[in-house]
Amino acid sequence: MRLDSHVVVRRAAFTLDLELTVEAGEVVALVGENGVGKTTYLHAVAGLVELDDGYVRLGDRVLDDATGRKHMSVEERRCGLVFQQHLLFSHLSAAENVAFGLRARGVGRRDARAWAREWLERLGVAQHADTPATRLSGGQSQRVALARALATEPDVLLLDEPFAALDVTARPAVHALLREHVFDDVRPVVLVTHDPADASALADRVVPLALGRPAA
């Protein structure tokens, strides 16, 4: 699987114009200050933002092609996006959050639940499976959000500021968690962060971004 993209999105404050290819198993970190278009790039790949120009291809699937006016709907894209604010569904428990994507794709309740437990286990939060999402701490909800994205076995993983919510002491543990359980040699990963230290610690390649374009 390979992510091949040229994303052009025009905004009032800036124009995002980023050509980015991520190979199977590669982890690319997009680094830059707030408001340079990092999150916009992730949302464009996930289909939440429409392209003004360019294309997004994932493996042999065309997700977006501005010239051909193709825009695959969000739910068909098989993208795993972990939002900066996690956005766990507050009316559901941790396990129900993780099972959500599977249930939405028609997986039976029992299977989805077993699969969700397995992912919570891998990410070290199995003991919180039945905890309502509103009662999870910041670190716990981040792990649940990761599990929720991974449980659907997406073709690409998009991580938006996964460390913003954590204090500095918690970071090494999350780094290890990502390396051991989240990154594999098949799935391309795009990691967005404003912290160059996090980027260099985790990424195979760092792409600095300044006002919508790759920094010199």
Binding site: G47, L48, R78, L81, F83, L87, F89, A104, R148, T152
Partner: peptide, 9 residues
């Protein structure tokens, strides 16, 4: 949006 990304119609 989060739900749609997870594959929900």
């Amino acid at each position: 949006q989060a739900a749609a990304v997870l594959g929900a119609s």
